[in-house]
Design a protein around this nucleic acid. Structure first.
Lengths: 246, 246
DNA sequence: GGACACAACCTGTTATGACAGGTCATTACC
DNA sequence: GGTAATGACCTGTCATAACAGGTTGTGTCC
């Protein structure tokens, strides 16, 4: 028996199609956490492919930590906390999209106001100079995960006001559309209790533990560009990073 | 032709042996960054195994980002990760001493017990294998700042039990006294509420927001060495880091 | 000398087949 | 009734074989 024709033009490999369909079944909720996935034999029959093909699809999903396997039992949907790599300077949607999650930003408010002392210091502005304040609630798989309060120079703010802030990352907009090269970011991390307003936006109880990340992002030539407070729900999301000895 | 006997007792799969040997060749410097690795056919002959076995070994290394593959050309050793510039993998006392702070560790408990599922998974041990659990409260300028719950292989634990854990960093002990070279660490960060026991140790109110850091430290050749939970007071201490676009 | 065809390699993908060993429910035996 | 054996299922591992399509050096033809 001969092997299958190799996708000559647009279409992709069999295993990647199976992998994508199964992943959609997971993120869409058709397979719930701790559900058993169809066994390899079932998938072989369902898609009329060999076991190698099925295993490659499941292996990819296992690598993404969407499922885990138990020898002798089967594959199960895992519920790992989605995480964002701190070790790379990237936006939220950018980070999540690579892991098969659905993201959406709800713009709570966008306004120009006088910089507070802290904000003016961080962005190296004169006190009370006008800055743009952007408040957004980030949703991951339809659950709110963080309230981001962003401060940028009012000049940048007027650019951003015209953009699609609901689905695109600020970093990507600045980099791709406006050619602003990003450099490094300084972070400080602590934990606070949710106040009533924040709790409502994040759909948690007032007084719930909230991870607060202060982030000051610089352009490639070292100018401060963007100062943010991220108030992150700690129960459905994790920040991760990897550091090395040196 | 019949298949190979399945490793009946101690020894592991063929592909994991090949993977480990190749990885050792990379971390030891026998293969340098951007070197081409032996091709799949060469490895098939060298180890007298099938292509599937070789590909599984190379696939694992690619997953670890030690190599990358180029269709039509071969597998190449990756350049060391950019996160090496980010931060430094160092212990708490080591970090604080360089900034003129006074540190002290109070050893709450040290015990050998069966690894929980999470600990066994992180340290790549068999379930319920004995591990050493070490609980310490870190003091900075006479104020408690964190409760560290450390899990190491029981073999390492017996070494540490003889050491002065009150004033020396575990990392420094392992590196200087036992010649264990440290590699990278993976961190996950979230926030929790202090339970009564933790609150008492950290001298905060029960229910205070606590920054929790999960840290898995690896040796230079990639073996997991030390798994820790750090419960950090959020009111007198901050974790800071700088990250770069990459 | 330069363009082009071709062969030699290389990884990507897929099929088929086989045995090891774990899990679990059912069945048979004491 | 409890226990032990059995068998159905499931994932882990490995072998052999094939074709697609990219890369690269080589040799031929003009």
């Amino acid at each position: 028996m001969l092997n299958v024709p190799q996708f000559p033009h647009g279409h992709v490999s069999l295993y990647s199609r199976i992998r994508d369909e199964l992943r959609h079944g997971i993120v869409s909720g058709r397979y719930l956490p701790h559900d058993r996935m169809p066994s390899e034999s079932q998938l072989m029959q369902q898609y009329s492919v060999s076991r190698i093909t099925v295993r490659q699809a499941l292996g990819d999903l296992e690598k993404e930590q969407l499922i885990f396997k138990v020898p002798g039992k089967g594959s199960y949907v895992s519920r790992p906390k989605p995480f964002q790599e701190l070790g790379r300077l990237q936006g939220f949607a950018e980070a999540m999209a690579t892991q098969g999650h659905e993201t959406y930003n709800h713009v709570v408010s966008i306004a120009t106001l006088a910089a507070s002392d802290v904000v003016a210091t961080r962005l190296q502005l004169a006190p009370a100079e006008p800055v743009c304040e952007l408040r957004r609630v980030r949703y991951l798989n339809r659950e709110p995960v963080s309230l981001d309060v962003t401060y940028v120079h009012s000049r940048i703010g007027t650019l951003l006001a015209r953009e699609d802030l609901a689905s695109r990352d600020i970093f990507l907009i600045l980099e791709n559309d406006y050619g602003i090269a990003l450099g490094h970011a300084d972070l400080a991390i602590d934990a606070v209790l949710a106040d009533a307003a924040t709790a409502a936006l994040l759909q948690v109880d007032t007084g719930a533990p909230i991870l607060r990340i202060e982030r000051l992002t610089h352009t490639h030539d070292g100018q401060p560009l963007d100062f943010e407070y991220l108030y992150c729900r700690a129960d459905n999301f994790q920040y991760r990073l990897r550091i090395a000895r040196g």
